[in-house]
Every structure is written in C-alpha cells, then in structure tokens.
Write a protein that binds this DNA or RNA. Structure first.
Lengths: 190, 190
DNA sequence: CCTTACCTACCTACTAGTAGATAAATCTTG
DNA sequence: CAAGATTTATCTACTAGTAGGTAGGTAAGG
C-alpha cells in the first residue's frame, strides 16, 4: 500500500464524503478542487486516474473500518454489546445522511476496477466474520441463544444492515435502521 | 400518469437496463441513442430532462413490480409460497447481474427529483405491506409461526433482500442472496 | 393545417486527463 | 560545506471527448 501524505488524505476525505452522499459517479475532480483547494491537475499527481483514486479510497476505508471493529472487540467483553456497538457505527453513518461507502461502490460496481471490487468483497466478508465471532462469544457467555447458527446470522446481519441503511436514508429516517437492528438483535437474545 | 408509446417504452427499457446494471449516473443519452436507434435530441421529445426520465422510469417500474406481487398473491394461496415466489423475482434480477432499480436509485438519491424519491419510499412500503399480508395469511393457515410479528418481519425482509442483492451482485454469486433468503424464510416456518 | 415524431445542427458546460513550467526541498558528491 | 542533481508538489494552459439540452426544420397522417 502506498503511503499517503496530508494532501492525499484530504483528497480522499472529500472523495469519500461525496461517494457516501452522492455516489462515485456523481462527483468530479472539480468538486475535489473546490473543497481541497488544489487544482484538478494536482489531483492526478496523487491519483493518476479516477479508478485509482477509488481503489486508494476503498483500501483506506476498509482498513479504517476493520480497525474500528477490532477496537470495539477490545473495548467490550460482551459479544452482544460488540454487536450493538458495531450497529451504532452504521446508525451514525445514516444520521449523517450517508450510505456505507462499500455499499455505494457495490451499486456502482461497473465504474471501478477489479481490485476495488475485490476490496468490497473482502470488506463484506471481514465484517461478516467479525459478527460471527461476536455471536459465538455471546453464546459462550450464555447471553445469546445457543440454537442460532452464528454464521447464518452473520451473513444475514450484514445484508440487513446494508439494505436498511439504503432504505433509511431514502426515507430520511435513521429510525428505520434502528428498528431493523433492534428487531434483529432482540431475536438473538435469550 | 402520461401515456407512453412504443418508442417511449423502448427508451425506458434501455434506461432501466443501464440503471439496474451500471447506475443512473453511469449512462448517457448517447447510450440510449445507440440502443434504441433514435437521436439524443429525440429522447428529449419524450422526456424533457434526465430527471423526468428517471421519474417516468421509476413510476413504470414500481407499477409493474406491484402488479407482479398482486399476480403472485392471486396465483398462490399459501402465504409462505407467496413469499418464496416473491423472493424468486429478486433472485432472477441478481442472476441477470442487475440490482433492484429502486435500490440503485436509492443509492443515487441526490441525482433524482423529490417526486422520484417519493416513488422509492412508496415502493419499499408497498413491498413491505405485501410481505406483511402474506405472513399474516400464513399464520392464519398455521404454516408460519404465530409468535413472529408480521410487521417486524416484513420491515427486515425488505431490507435483507436489498442488502443481500447488493452483496450477491458484488460477489457475482446469486447464491449469496439465495442463502440469505432461505435462512430468513426457514426461521419463519413452524 | 395542426400534431406527432422524428431529424440535423448546434451550444455551453463540464469531463478526465496531459504537457510542461516552476519553485522549493532534499539528497549527492567533489 | 557548497554546487549540482533530483525529487516533490504544485501551478497554468491545454486537449479531446462527452454531458444534457435547445432551436428549428421536415415529413407523414389525421
């Protein structure tokens, strides 16, 4: 992975913001120019093409998100509390009228390169594995029903969060996401 | 609602195809020109702006989808079979490497007009109500657990389908969607 | 003769991306 | 250490191509 300096990070911050709010195809180098305060040509100095910008942006997002999940695992010993905290991260995203960056790029699949798509797949699988481990931990702790398949739950949980974010943002109601998450988590508890 | 002639329908067919495969911001009037065989200027004759094209396209899609759901309800007396048949429609979409048109436009929210967003919200609510009624019917038929809240299930089911479609398409594996749906439906059965 | 359904020709604004200049910082070597 | 070479980070100026959209014309048909 390339080491990014301050300017490169600012460019990615702006690109990430627009990707999560409007979509990758809905912003241009001019938007970045206006927000970062460097010329469009200078953006090419850091990211030769828009597809390469997408790849760097995705890599950084996926790494940061994974770090956040590991931090939650460190901070909360309860498996079910880990799930709740992870859900909180997604709820915050919708409260900012944003969509998951990986969900957004997943919808715009054909506009990014194969390496970026691979990152998206890795993202969904990583989150899924993390959820599965949290559930399994909760079952050892006898806080989560023993009869649910941790794996099956994890697969569905990631999907339900992505879908509920999309719908919640459309309605302009973070409560939609909150309701779906609460229903799903309550089904889990003993 | 405007009455659409053959050419208008062809334009919407192409726009719909590209929206579901690449996204609304990822195709141009030139793409429609190439596929339909009329000049870009002629597209404006039917749809003055791209936003109005989006609105007509959404309206037609939502109407067609609703009609399909009502047809399923007519054809299958079993509540649970209705759910299975509805799921089949979504699975077909992913098998064609497409995403739900409303899911796609939901992600591209900022590029469409308020009237279109209202159609999306109507779509998600309509599907949700339809699912709720199918579940309730299944409970009367004693084929579906009595203790699940039909409404809570319906809210989550629509979200889980949208999210699972997004992820399944990213992976290029319709099986992802099928797995999620099977898990969800199995939880329902007595 | 007006409406329908197109067309040609055009416009302005923007798109991502390139070429080449420049100034400053940093590294290399006599 | 000073002189020179290279790298870094930016700029101006540009390009070819595309975007959505408009103006005005035309041929056919009710």
């Amino acid at each position: 992975m390339l080491k990014l300096n301050d300017t490169a990070h600012k460019i990615l911050d702006v690109a990430e913001f627009y990707t999560q709010t409007k979509g990758f195809n809905a912003f241009s180098y001019k938007d970045i120019q206006n927000d970062v305060g460097i010329k469009t040509s200078s953006i090419h100095y850091y990211f030769p093409t828009k597809k390469e910008l997408a790849l760097s942006m995705t890599a950084r997002y996926v790494d940061n998100f994974h770090a956040k999940l590991l931090e939650i695992r460190d901070l909360y010993p309860s498996g079910i509390e880990q799930i709740v905290q992870m859900a909180e991260v997604y709820i915050d995203v919708v409260k900012q009228n944003k969509f998951c960056m990986c969900g957004m790029l997943a919808s715009e699949l054909t506009s990014i390169c194969d390496a970026s798509v691979a990152k998206l797949i890795y993202f969904f699988e990583t989150v899924q594995s993390w959820v599965e481990e949290a559930i399994t931990l909760g079952q050892h702790q006898k806080a989560i029903k023993q009869n649910v398949s941790a794996k099956a739950f994890a697969i569905s949980f990631v999907s339900v969060i992505e879908g509920a974010m999309l719908i919640a943002r459309t309605k302009g109601e973070p409560n939609h996401l909150i309701t779906v998450i609460n229903n799903t988590i309550n089904d889990l508890k003993i």
